[in-house]
Design a protein around this nucleic acid. Structure first.
Lengths: 221, 221
DNA sequence: GATACCAATTTGGGATACCAAGATGGTATT
DNA sequence: AATACCATCTTGGTATCCCAAATTGGTATC
């Protein structure tokens, strides 16, 4: 594993895990010292993370991307387009057995499962569902979108009921795809994503003072 | 303008303009000498172009992305999803006056217009149409897709009739959007993209021997 | 006390030197 | 002549040094 990949991976995990807060300033020298790498791989890693939208340039200097409510809304529209397209393709496939693996993944979560795991499975559901379509570009689009949503989903206040509803909606979507009902799967998925966006943006908007108090930059919609 | 941006822009133009052939090997030292920059900005530029899919890693070393017929088909599916989503959003807007600017752009092309201009306008049509939706992610997706299709479109054998048909289809799409007919616009756009893909892949497939003879790596579908 | 200005420090951009691993080509041995 | 082997060169990865610009902090002046 090269130093660049090391720095990229660790820095991404720190950002996505909110160990470095949204809006925080980064200096190449700090990262250099933090990970024990020299500036060359550090700069390479920053360039890659920039294309993922996790860090940005603030004139001179680097900043961890803030939580942007308007952007979250746009991402929801974007992922709806690509996820619906993917699920329609999958519903038209002859071999849809990949569905079962995803269903098993969902079922591996229960009341005892830690929140980290729910979080991961909630993202992987959409990514793996998109993978079944067999289109690299749709898959990458979904993966990128979920990455960008990841931090916001950590900050969202979610109760047991919300988790259960998402779980049920996921299963309903899988059932429609398994049955080859493309239109119904698309309708369910659209509704799921729209509701998901609604709750996410509302939750963050209501809590934006609390988030700012924690030092997280939140850009209004 | 920083050196990195210089190298990135020039290298991208050389790749998209087929001055460097698909599949060709690149060494950091050659680029360094070619553009009079040192390896630091060269490496930064390569890292960025890699995320655009224009260059890739070939184990040790860099290669210009080959023409990949399977990939072209997947891109068409991807862009259909995002372009249709964008055009539906635009058709639902109150202010759709941006349409007229795009129509004027189309009309600036006639029989006297050089091929480079047709090529550029053909791509910009889709990009500008997507921009009207006001969604950064849909716009970027379309822009990226068009960038990846750019070289293949240069290689495609297109006659006057094909150009005229595309021109007419573009205008028909605009008319539907202007009238606010989302479903019809979506249908026309889908058909346009599907036909476009069909002709593109067929043309390149039929001509793949000629392309390989010119030193261009072509990966079959 | 406010402000204008200057020096010192910090920061990212760029250039270069070094290294390890892999490709290459020549040579010696059979 | 074929092949095994070794020296050499090439290449990307990394570390480090230099530089210009911008920020910062203090100081002197009004």
């Amino acid at each position: 594993m090269s130093q660049m990949q090391n720095v990229e991976r660790q820095l991404r995990e720190m950002i996505l895990g909110l160990e470095i807060g949204p809006g925080e300033r980064l200096t190449e020298r700090w990262i250099e010292g933090r990970f024990g790498a020299s500036r060359t791989p550090v700069r390479a890693a920053l360039l890659r993370l920039e294309t993922e939208g996790l860090v940005g340039r603030d004139g001179r200097g680097w900043t961890v991307a803030p939580i942007n409510l308007a952007e979250l809304g746009q991402i929801a529209v974007y992922r709806e387009a690509v996820e619906v397209a993917a699920v329609r393709l999958t519903a038209a496939l002859e071999d849809r057995s990949g569905i079962d693996v995803i269903a098993a993944m969902l079922d591996s979560c229960d009341a005892e499962t830690p929140r980290e795991e729910w979080h991961r499975v909630g993202m992987d559901f959409h990514i793996e569902l998109a993978r079944l379509a067999g289109n690299e570009f749709l898959l990458r689009a979904v993966r990128d979108a979920m990455t960008r949503l990841s931090r916001a989903r950590w900050l969202e206040v979610r109760d047991e009921k919300a988790l259960g509803r998402a779980w049920a909606e996921h299963h309903a979507i899988l059932a429609a795809v398994r049955a080859g009902h493309a239109d119904e799967a698309a309708r369910l998925l659209s509704g799921h994503i729209a509701g998901s966006r609604e709750r996410l943006v509302t939750s963050l908007h209501d809590d934006r003072r609390g988030l700012r108090a924690r030092g997280f930059a939140v850009v209004a919609a």
